[in-house]
């Protein structure tokens, strides 16, 4: 049976089409989910894609977290369903309390848009198991509020439990504490990252196909379940 992975569209979402394409390329089946529907259509996992949901009003992700579909995502995630938040999706998952910390305005204020090297520091989560520990991957980063911030005790917990999934290498683009680009939940099922793996699934259209590894990891997780 083919794994079905939902991709949510909010008003202002930009990267749902690429996220769905990445899901399909990995061999899973993408399922479109709508922000206003409290219905996950029976999917096995969910991708919360990037963009500017609700225009980033109030704070990035602050309004989207209260969308009807997010109540369902929060409930399902707490029961172990794999969830991936990319860029604005990462911000939404932080606002929703599924991941700790928050993303604030980039240090230096500039919107950063470039191909970014990352090191995979956790190769056991539902979305990173296809990577070798310490592997370096190249995927696009495009964000203005990507500076990861959390209390010191949260940082200590993330570092101590090996929950920093991705770290910027070759220079910190936005001031994120500990060079953090992405993290996982304590159970390794929820992952959020600022860079965009869905834009790096084919050398024809991206800097690499490294991003496909996240979607293949999810497929492995779902098939093994």
């Amino acid at each position: 049976m083919t794994a079905r992975i939902g991709v949510i569209t909010f008003p202002g979402t930009l990267d749902d089409t690429d996220a769905a394409r990445a899901v399909d390329r990995s061999g899973a089946q993408s399922v479109a989910l709508w922000h206003a529907d409290a219905d996950l259509k029976g999917v096995d996992a969910v991708v919360v894609p990037g963009g500017f949901s609700y225009g980033d009003y109030l704070r990035a992700g602050a309004i989207a977290r209260f969308a009807p579909v997010m109540s369902e995502v929060i409930t399902a995630a707490k029961q172990g369903m794999p969830v991936l938040g990319i860029c604005n999706g990462f911000q939404i998952l932080c606002e929703a309390g599924l991941l700790p910390g928050v993303l604030i305005r980039n240090k230096g204020l500039h919107f950063v848009c470039r191909d970014q090297w990352l090191r995979v520091d956790n190769s056991t989560s539902a979305w990173t198991s296809r990577f070798d520990q310490g592997a370096e991957i190249l995927i696009p980063l495009k964000s203005g509020e990507g500076c990861y911030v959390a209390d010191q005790h949260v940082l200590d917990e993330l570092e101590g439990e090996g929950r920093v999934a991705f770290r910027y290498v070759g220079g910190n683009p936005n001031g994120a504490l500990n060079d953090i680009a992405g993290i996982t939940s304590a159970n390794g099922r929820v992952v959020g990252l600022m860079p965009h793996p869905e834009h790096a699934i084919d050398a024809l259209t991206g800097p690499s196909d490294d991003g496909l590894g996240l979607f293949l990891s999810a497929l492995d997780t779902l098939v093994a379940a």
């Binding site: 604030i104 305005r105 980039n106 240090k107 230096g108 204020l109 500076c147 911030v149 001031g175």
Partner: peptide, 13 residues
């Protein structure tokens, strides 16, 4: 308000 220990790049600008 941003907490005192939190970087405030907009205020700095």
């Amino acid at each position: 308000m941003p907490k005192p220990e939190i970087l405030d790049p907009q205020g700095q600008a």
